[in-house]
């Protein structure tokens, strides 16, 4: 039973990585939000299983926190946001998708190499997934760089936060509770501010294309 559960954590980690790639290749914005929600749900499941296997009670709270913020509140906000902004367009990318995927694969290799020596030091049962967590962070980072619209950029930012939470779970069974609450609060407030921002940006530029936001530069 125990061994199966540990295997299931590895499975969840693999699903997280796949979802990151899925988000990277996704052109439709609604699907992107669905994928993000799924990623959050996978994170919750992984955290809960780690909590059960290691008997770390505070990880249950952490899982519940992620469930509320990343799976329920933020996706609802995102759906309402795109509904009210009436954006149904396909996501534009600055680099074409096959190239992005290739860069993504290189990033994963790099992340595994970087994480290998650290993961061996960790006493956690799931330390081998640290590489996957770092890869998720880097892939979300790549997504933020290659997307031209504001909403996908924000989703990239949030999915990076997911990767970081998973890294904390994998390496050290999560951060101290105060810190996790603080981070969740910051992310939520940040989300609200970004939502307000998007309306203002659209009011100013009649579009959410952040290529309009390139007037301030050195000449």
């Amino acid at each position: 039973m125990h061994a199966y559960l540990i295997q299931s954590i590895n499975l969840f980690a693999a699903v997280l990585l796949l979802l990151s790639f899925g988000m990277l290749s996704q052109r439709r914005i609604l699907t992107l939000i669905h994928l993000f929600t799924l990623q959050g749900a996978t994170l919750v499941a992984a955290t809960a299983v780690v909590a059960y296997v290691t008997n770390q009670h505070h990880l249950y709270y952490s899982a519940a926190l992620t469930l509320v913020t990343k799976v329920i509140v933020i996706p609802i906000l995102l759906h309402r946001l795109i509904h009210r902004l009436n954006v149904k367009w396909d996501v534009e990318t600055l680099i074409n998708i096959p190239t992005t995927m290739l860069i993504g694969i290189l990033l994963v290799v790099f992340a595994f190499n970087l994480a290998l020596p650290i993961a061996q030091l960790s006493s956690s049962i799931v330390h081998s997934t640290l590489g996957i967590a770092l890869a998720c962070v880097l892939l979300s980072f790549l997504m933020m760089i290659t997307r031209a619209k504001a909403v996908p950029q924000v989703i990239g930012f949030l999915s990076m936060e997911n990767g970081l939470f998973f890294a904390a779970t994998a390496a050290t069974y999560g951060m101290p509770m105060v810190v996790e609450f603080g981070i969740a609060f910051d992310v939520l407030v940040g989300m609200f501010i970004l939502g307000v921002f998007m309306f203002q940006i659209r009011e100013q530029f009649d579009s959410l294309d952040i290529r309009h936001l390139e007037t301030l530069k050195e000449d």
Binding site: A150, G190, I193, L194, F197, I201, I210, L213, T215, L216
Partner: peptide
């Protein structure tokens, strides 16, 4: 427009 751009970049 400029202050929104600055704030977005900052964020």
């Amino acid at each position: 427009a400029a202050s929104l751009e600055a704030a977005w970049k900052y964020f």
